[in-house]
Design a protein around this nucleic acid. Sequence first.
DNA 1: CGGCCACAGGTAATCGATTACATGCGTGGC
DNA 2: GCCACGCATGTAATCGATTACCTGTGGCCG
Lengths: 346, 346
Amino acid sequence: MATIKDVAGRAGVSVATVSRVLNGRSAVADTRERVLAAVAELGYRPNVVARALRTARTRTLGLVISDLRNPFFTELADAVEQEARRLGYSLVIGNAGESAEQQDDQIRTLLDRRIDGLLVSSAGTGSAALREAVAAGTPLVLLDRTVPGLAAPCVRAEGRRALGELAAHLATLGRRRPAVIVAPAGTPIGEERLELFRAALAGHGIALPAERVLASPDLSPTGGRRMMRALLDLPEPPDAVLATDNLMALGALDEVRARGLRIPADVALVAFDDVPWFAHTDPPLTAVAQPTRELGTSAVHTLLERIEGREAPSVLLPARLVRRRSCGEQPEPRVREEIREERGSA
Amino acid sequence: MATIKDVAGRAGVSVATVSRVLNGRSAVADTRERVLAAVAELGYRPNVVARALRTARTRTLGLVISDLRNPFFTELADAVEQEARRLGYSLVIGNAGESAEQQDDQIRTLLDRRIDGLLVSSAGTGSAALREAVAAGTPLVLLDRTVPGLAAPCVRAEGRRALGELAAHLATLGRRRPAVIVAPAGTPIGEERLELFRAALAGHGIALPAERVLASPDLSPTGGRRMMRALLDLPEPPDAVLATDNLMALGALDEVRARGLRIPADVALVAFDDVPWFAHTDPPLTAVAQPTRELGTSAVHTLLERIEGREAPSVLLPARLVRRRSCGEQPEPRVREEIREERGSA
DNA sequence: CGGCCACAGGTAATCGATTACATGCGTGGC
DNA sequence: GCCACGCATGTAATCGATTACCTGTGGCCG
């Protein structure tokens, strides 16, 4: 591969001049053209490794995602990558697979590569490597999941309004015995969703007793299915169930079907996190949709602020309720259209 | 951040000695311990950028995936990442979003970062940047999708046996009017699947006329839905449809449902590519499952062979038929179990 | 007791870029 | 006509590691 020296030789100038031409500082027309010609002839491309070593900037961001196979996070990662690339940064993605250990491994690998900044949707609640990153002075922004006590801004969605609408929606439809399948205990954001929903229901005079709030052991369809089983086995089974994650909602759906029950006639089902295939299930699921792509772009912007040394506040974007048919309402006229267009040319 | 010089100073030795201790060449007990102590005290981590510059090896692989939001590719990427990490390599993932242009952009970025090897599941048929990679001598392995005329091994799945089983399955169930929704024209692997299926059907005396083979304009639910609409509008509509990609199958399913038709009573539906949520649709979809994780690990191994300068042959792994309920057979006893376990702790 | 060898460990070159500083040339002002 | 200033460009240091080569010490053998 051609180096800057080869280009300099070919153009009959020094390496400094080549560098200056390529970085747009000075150089007069004649020289400039000779250099560019040499670059073209040799197919020269600057070695970003060398550049990074010298400038101490890699123009690379790191993203550690809690579970890459979860479609919510896939879309988030995609949004982050696009925005980063648009702004001239590469993105290195690390998958934590919902394991705190693997997350630490990924974070350390990224720090070793001297990325300019780090985005993390943390798998556990905090971790040693996260603190190391802060200590090392690497700009850090949390994504979707907060980590209590960590000095880093967090970009996430907030469900107050959407959960308020959901409570109203359920009340209107006459549902009186709601239940919630929440994320494993200790997940701060799951607790928040639960409390907001509880408060919203209370506003309509609907109670959410403890026996109808079940924490799944993990964020998986299996966990969701098991919790739904327990709920349906209750002496007074719920008439509406909210699952605070898309995979758990999927498992819950399986259990309802396996029992031959109908949605929404026998029980309503709502998911937190809207993912493309919720529009394709039978019936299409009503969901609290996080503004996924906006979360991604906003996280990149926040991180760049921090990289440039500015303070950046946490960002809370409102989620919105997407009404489909799993709670019993008639489909709105645009629902069929939505099915057709939602994925676009994905 | 501490550098090797800081460590050397603290341990009272030269940087060469530190490097040797850390890389396991020589160094006697006493010195060794002083160095390791200094490393621990300073929290020193080698700068991989500097190391890469010196050694001309980044210990990084690149993966350009045709569409990260397609769950088949997500799982493939996850498998590749895990195997790469296990073998001491980092993985940089680039998403092409099914655009040849973006793919070239991603490939060039990866080449600039001097990755040791490149894995590509090509979006278009060939591209300038792919040829540049080969010309630059970067070890290259194609994944899932071949590129005719490119001097690089390809790791992919092959459906002969599975499609043979599928043809037999359909014949047994009395289906006589099969149809196929294929990928956009010019996708080599789509053509192959079609021809294998056609041959297998012929073995059972079933014809596959041209009017029942439709090429979708893109790999999306929208495209699949449109093709299914055209098929169902045929004077003699098909009684079994194979979609050669999971997203198109999803769209096809939507169209069947929107018309109030039943699967499998009115029409059977089969997908090429098994993805986790096919076990959760209603009914669960019969699918030709590619050995996704094996494809990923095998691709990494092939690439490492090439990186170490050895020749490496292309790899063809057999796909297998996963019978669920979308063709009309009774569910086998283990199907319920499968629904529960398939995603595991995903 | 002297010489040689083995080996730990230091010195310095190197990877490919950026960039501070030096140099030299041309031009404009007095 | 001379000096100074500005600007294009070259020289060389630098980033943080690895590694070829050199040095010095100690042990062993003759």
